[in-house]
Nucleic acid binder design. Sequence first.
DNA 1: TTTGATGT
Length: 237
Amino acid sequence: MSAGLQAEDFTCNGHVEFGIPAQADQYLCRDGYAVGYDYQTKNPAWVAYHITGDGVSIRNRRSNSFKPDKTIPSQYRANLSDYSKSGYDRGHMAPSATMDYTPKAGKESFLLTNMAPQLPGLNRNGWRFLEKEIREWAVDHSELYVVTGPIYYGGPSKYIGDGVAVPDAFFKVVFDPLAFNAIAFISPHQKISKADLTSFITTVDHVEQVTDMDFNQLLSKNYENTMESTQWSLSDW
DNA sequence: TTTGATGT
């Protein structure tokens, strides 16, 4: 993306059609997702992606080719060595299995600007289940907008490698633009199971309070206020 | 594991 593009003009293939969640140091646009990147943490502040039921049903082979993102200035860029032997996974924000409707989109999901340090006990357990659930919801709901990212309570305090911040928690906001419903999650950064997930459902309002972001800000405020204060259960959504 | 990663 050109350096001169203003945030308000950044819609990125429709991934942030309803407005960027927060200003960022650098905006990145890929086929499958949009990123607001944070220089201080060397992580994405948010990753937004629009998915359809048709798209998530198309699968291509997982690339597993993790790569540093050379569009980020080197002093702010995460590298493979930062994660190596850290004990943390390179945790996808926009999941590979959700992005793999084309080989190119799938490969792009392996850029480190789509990653944050994530404990295997989260990434490979409860979080993975949530990602799978969202793919199934995309089929049921026809299309969804998802925003996900890290949370640092009181600011970043723990790092791996050369200054890649370890999040305290992760959020997900899932918005159905046809039904005008939204469900949200905040998961602590710890081992969680599929069964634990239901206890981490919250409202979009709460995620906005914790992250200081604004989701779906371009929607009618009437819709937004109702939608963002609704607490869902997994079975009703 | 048809997912999501690590280490050799």
